Simulated assay, not measured.
Amino acid sequence: MLWPVVEMVRTSFLRISTSGFVRGWAGFDKYTKLFDQADFLPVLGWTVLWTSTVVTLTIVGSLALAQLFNQQFPGRRLTRWALIAPWAASVLMTSIGFKWMLDRTAGVLNTAMVDLGLIDAPKDWLGDPATAKPWMVLIAVFVSLPFTTYTLLAGLQTVPGEVYEAAKVDGTTPWQTYRLITLPLLRPALMVSLVINLINVFNSFPVIWGTTQGGPDSATATTTVFAFQLMNTDIGESAAMSVVNFGLVVVMVVAFLKVSRWNEEN
Rank of each mutant, 00 (worst) to 15 (best):
M1F: 12
E7W: 12
E7G: 05
M8F: 02
V9I: 14
R10E: 10
T11E: 05
S12V: 11
L14F: 14
R15Y: 12
R15E: 09
R15L: 11
I16T: 09
S17E: 12
F21A: 13
V22Q: 05
W25I: 14
F28Y: 07
F28T: 10
K30W: 08
T32L: 15
L34Q: 06
D36I: 03
D36H: 12
A38V: 11
D39N: 10
F40L: 04
L41K: 07
L44H: 08
L44F: 14
T51E: 01
T53L: 13
V55K: 03
T56M: 07
L57G: 04
T58H: 09
T58D: 11
V60S: 03
G61M: 11
S62K: 07
L63M: 13
L63I: 11
A64I: 10
L65F: 10
A66V: 07
A66F: 06
Q67M: 12
Q72L: 13
Q72D: 14
F73R: 05
G75D: 04
G75M: 11
G75W: 14
R76Y: 10
R77M: 09
R80I: 07
L83W: 03
I84M: 12
A85L: 15
W87E: 01
W87F: 14
A88N: 07
A89S: 07
L92M: 04
T94F: 14
S95T: 13
F98L: 07
R104I: 11
R104C: 04
R104E: 11
V108Q: 02
D115F: 15
D115T: 15
D115M: 14
I119V: 08
P122V: 09
A132P: 06
K133S: 08
V137F: 06
I139K: 02
A140T: 08
A140F: 04
A140Q: 03
V143F: 09
S144Q: 00
L145R: 00
L145N: 04
T148N: 14
T149D: 01
A154C: 06
G155Y: 07
L156M: 13
L156Q: 08
T158L: 14
T158F: 13
E162F: 14
E162S: 15
E165Q: 15
E165T: 14
K168Q: 14
K168N: 13
D170M: 13
G171A: 12
T173H: 10
P174S: 05
R179Y: 02
L180P: 04
I181N: 01
P184R: 00
L186M: 07
L186G: 00
P188S: 06
A189P: 00
M191K: 08
V192A: 12
L198H: 02
L198S: 01
I199Q: 00
F202L: 03
N203V: 06
F205M: 02
F205H: 01
F205A: 00
I208S: 06
I208Q: 03
W209H: 06
G210D: 09
Q213V: 11
D217R: 09
A219C: 07
T222Q: 00
T223I: 15
T224C: 01
V225D: 00
F228K: 01
Q229L: 04
Q229I: 03
L230E: 02
D234F: 03
D234A: 08
G236K: 04
A239H: 11
M241S: 02
M241A: 08
S242T: 09
S242C: 09
V244D: 00
G247A: 09
L248Y: 04
V251T: 00
V254K: 10
V259I: 09
W262D: 01
N263W: 15
E265V: 13
E265S: 11
